[in-house]
Amino acid sequence: NGSPVPVPTPNLIRVVKNSNTLGIAIEGGANTRQPLPRIVTIQKGGSAHNCGQLKVGQIILEVNGISLRGREHKDAAKIIAEAFKTKEKDHIDFLVVDPG
């Protein structure tokens, strides 16, 4: 669209499932003020915290290559929950952006 909006660089972060919980809280989703899920909490002792790279405030663009764009909150949460639950992989790849 030509407007000079700075585009933050996405980061791919691999979270190894080394704890019984993922340990993040997210808010947002399609048709809300926050159209892509944003990390609002990271719980100590969870796999996300152990990974050391996920941060509060980051916006999740993709989970294991699945785009969260256009997905409503419950759908996005389900995708993340299922990525954690599946035994096919011992990790989850998050594509996130750090706003500002």
């Binding site: 993922l22 993040i24 947002g28 003020r33 993340i80």
Partner: peptide, 15 residues
């Protein structure tokens, strides 16, 4: 000009 947020806030889910 004031920008109004008309979209609802989201719920929060712990995962």
């Amino acid at each position: 000009r004031e920008k109004r947020l008309t979209l609802p806030p989201s719920e929060i889910t712990l995962l």
